[in-house]
Amino acid sequence: MKKYFLTSAQIALILVYLVIFAGAFVRLTGSGMGCPDWPKCFGYYIPPTEQQELLFAAGKEYDKGQVIIKEEALLVAKNDFTSKTSFDSTNWEKYTKHDYAIFNPIHTWVEYINRLLGALAGIACVITFILSFGYRKENKKLILLTFLICVLMGFQAWLGKTVVDSVLNPFKITTHMLAALLIVALQLIVIYTVKKHNKTLVFNQKFNWILAGALGLTIIQIVLGTTVREHVDIVSETGAPEIMWLQNPTIAFYIHRSFSIIVLLTNLYLFYLNRKLTLGFNKINWVIIILFIEIISGILMYYFAFPFGTQTIHVVLATLLFGVQFYTILESNNKKMLF
């Protein structure tokens, strides 16, 4: 079991990041309500590709829970039945969790793939939890951590359901993102715990404190970013063109934009300390590269009217930045380092 544990944990982490990417792409394409029900999609395990499949048809076999769109409303089959020539309302009940009843095949399949990746990530986390029992004698903490990750993945699935039921409530979307970061952090702890560390890193208390502060700044920036995104979503839903999405931004946008300077300077100082004191934390180089690309994507969104893909890149890079910084903190607190 030990032999495959690390590989399984790493695969689970990659899948979680793929889910984050897919979730960002869902928001980019406005596909959040592509599947208006949960866990199925329009009552199907494999969603339809044409609206015709969601319209009432005579002589068709319907399964319990299957969904159709009729008169701009979602109707759910009460039981298994075969439809007659005319529509019989007694076989159907209205979907009551929300009144969103629009079918867009692209949105539906983007959201469906997002859910599939989430399911795969969940399965990978469960497998990692099972494999963690190989460490039950020497490190029971791994069993607890991997179990907690599974619980959080279940919470994420439930939260995803409530996001759909609430027709994409902004607060719940933000909570969804923060929960994903917590999962990433726990997965990195698991991976770091079992991974062999051959590099010699030099402990420096000043570097450690600033690194912890930099991670805190990143989390604040992510929260501010989701607030800005909520405003953008509201404006975009009015049908306004991209050039107008940040024409009258909230104060959160200006704080988010200005705060990025503090984030950059803090991490540049860490880069300087790492080089000057020869501490050996090479992942700080990754942090700087990610930050510069992140800032460029932000500039492109604001000054060039949200070029396609920049929003997704911006979100995914923020989570990657968090992951690299958190892993560097784990390295900097390694008890085996030279003092």
Rank of each mutant, 00 (worst) to 15 (best):
residue 5 F to V: 02
residue 8 S to Y: 02
residue 11 I to G: 05
residue 14 I to T: 08
residue 15 L to S: 14
residue 18 L to I: 06
residue 23 G to N: 12
residue 24 A to F: 05
residue 28 L to R: 04
residue 30 G to A: 09
residue 30 G to E: 05
residue 30 G to D: 09
residue 31 S to M: 02
residue 34 G to K: 13
residue 34 G to A: 11
residue 45 Y to Q: 08
residue 46 I to K: 08
residue 47 P to F: 01
residue 49 T to C: 00
residue 51 Q to R: 09
residue 56 F to C: 09
residue 56 F to T: 06
residue 57 A to N: 07
residue 63 D to F: 10
residue 64 K to I: 04
residue 66 Q to T: 06
residue 66 Q to N: 07
residue 68 I to V: 04
residue 69 I to F: 02
residue 70 K to W: 00
residue 74 L to N: 01
residue 78 K to V: 07
residue 78 K to T: 06
residue 85 T to L: 12
residue 86 S to L: 11
residue 89 S to L: 13
residue 89 S to D: 15
residue 90 T to D: 10
residue 95 Y to D: 03
residue 99 D to Q: 13
residue 102 I to Q: 07
residue 104 N to A: 08
residue 108 T to L: 04
residue 109 W to G: 11
residue 111 E to F: 00
residue 113 I to A: 08
residue 113 I to R: 00
residue 114 N to Y: 00
residue 119 A to Y: 04
residue 124 A to M: 10
residue 127 I to L: 15
residue 131 L to G: 10
residue 134 G to S: 05
residue 135 Y to I: 05
residue 136 R to W: 10
residue 138 E to K: 14
residue 139 N to W: 06
residue 139 N to V: 07
residue 140 K to Q: 11
residue 141 K to C: 01
residue 143 I to K: 09
residue 146 T to K: 08
residue 147 F to L: 15
residue 149 I to M: 12
residue 154 G to H: 06
residue 155 F to Q: 07
residue 162 T to F: 14
residue 163 V to E: 07
residue 167 V to E: 11
residue 168 L to H: 01
residue 169 N to K: 07
residue 170 P to V: 09
residue 170 P to C: 11
residue 171 F to E: 06
residue 172 K to S: 05
residue 177 M to E: 13
residue 185 A to G: 14
residue 186 L to E: 10
residue 187 Q to A: 07
residue 187 Q to F: 11
residue 189 I to P: 03
residue 196 K to Y: 03
residue 200 T to L: 15
residue 201 L to I: 08
residue 202 V to L: 14
residue 202 V to C: 06
residue 202 V to K: 15
residue 214 A to R: 04
residue 215 L to G: 04
residue 215 L to T: 02
residue 216 G to N: 03
residue 217 L to S: 04
residue 222 I to L: 10
residue 223 V to H: 04
residue 223 V to N: 04
residue 225 G to R: 06
residue 226 T to M: 11
residue 227 T to W: 03
residue 231 H to T: 03
residue 238 T to F: 05
residue 241 P to F: 12
residue 241 P to R: 14
residue 244 M to E: 15
residue 250 T to V: 02
residue 252 A to P: 00
residue 253 F to E: 07
residue 256 H to V: 06
residue 259 F to W: 03
residue 261 I to R: 00
residue 264 L to G: 00
residue 265 L to E: 00
residue 270 L to P: 02
residue 272 Y to F: 13
residue 273 L to W: 00
residue 276 K to V: 01
residue 277 L to T: 00
residue 279 L to M: 07
residue 279 L to G: 10
residue 283 K to D: 12
residue 294 E to N: 12
residue 297 S to A: 15
residue 297 S to D: 03
residue 300 L to R: 03
residue 301 M to D: 13
residue 302 Y to T: 09
residue 303 Y to L: 13
residue 303 Y to P: 00
residue 305 A to S: 15
residue 305 A to N: 15
residue 310 T to I: 05
residue 311 Q to G: 15
residue 312 T to V: 09
residue 312 T to P: 10
residue 317 L to N: 15
residue 325 Q to G: 05
residue 326 F to T: 12
residue 326 F to G: 12
residue 327 Y to N: 08
residue 327 Y to W: 12
residue 329 I to Q: 10
residue 331 E to H: 11
residue 332 S to R: 09
residue 336 K to M: 07
residue 339 F to K: 14
